[in-house]
Write a protein that binds this DNA or RNA. Structure first.
Lengths: 126, 126
DNA sequence: CTAAGTGTACTATCAGTGTTAGTACACTTA
DNA sequence: TAAGTGTACTAACACTGATAGTACACTTAG
């Protein structure tokens, strides 16, 4: 479900944060459902519990999860987070478009490529 | 012309590399024109000459510039680099689209937003 | 009540990397 | 000849991510 990439230059704890953000916002993890425990997830991913804790602390600080002492961490039901997360994608898109313009990639070429990527992997309906 | 962001988590030398890649590929810096000297650019940006050298070494390794002993570094006239640089933008776009799909951003919303970003800052023709 | 599992906090240490500092040498050119 | 150029090298520093180990309070199942 999670899966981390040790080659990636992005820190492990950030990968975990982003992965859970997506899972929560997209509804895969339902509100009030329990998160994996710090120790169990650390075992599963073969990394240090402190690293998981760092990720969970960030997720809590951002409102994605809430902790219950002695019981565990649970998914928060904050609706606004989805918009926020989508906005960050659009912010990245804006930067990428700026790069594209600098490199003189035509608008249509860029836009149509995006559309193609969107359609890739979808079911073919005959 | 260059301008670096010390707040950015991307290393200084990489910022310099990417900036020059864009300037070269977009034609702002013409083939065989002289690059700023290692020491002068270091002075201008108030950073260490070693950092500039690291950036130049990368640019040379990638074929963007070529060195002439005792004279300086010069812009290479490699045509293939433009395509390569554009491809990297498309690769980033592919990843971003994947994120967008996970967050259930509709294809049209994504694509139209890209188009809007492209049109922003362009001259209004009345 | 007890034991196991939970979050949380803390210190210490290690490893990698980006950056700086300083020096040195060969080359080209005015 | 002197100044400017690239290039190479070592050393040191700072920051950050990650690990290791310990400790304590809490909840829950037995």
């Amino acid at each position: 479900m999670i899966g981390i990439d040790l080659q990636n230059r992005k820190p492990i704890y950030e990968q975990i944060v982003e992965r859970f953000q997506t899972l929560i916002v997209s509804g895969v993890l339902e509100p009030d459902s329990q998160m994996p425990s710090v120790r169990s997830l650390a075992m599963e991913l073969s990394i240090n519990p402190n690293t998981i804790q760092k990720a969970y602390a960030a997720l809590e600080q951002e409102g994605y999860i809430y902790p219950v002492k002695g019981r565990g961490n649970f998914v928060s039901g904050n609706e606004g987070l989805k918009q926020k997360k989508q906005d960050s994608v659009f912010a990245s898109l804006k930067e990428l478009v700026a790069k594209g313009k600098e490199l003189k990639i035509p608008c249509n070429a860029f836009v149509e490529r995006a559309r193609t990527f969107y359609q890739e992997g979808e079911e073919q309906r005959v």
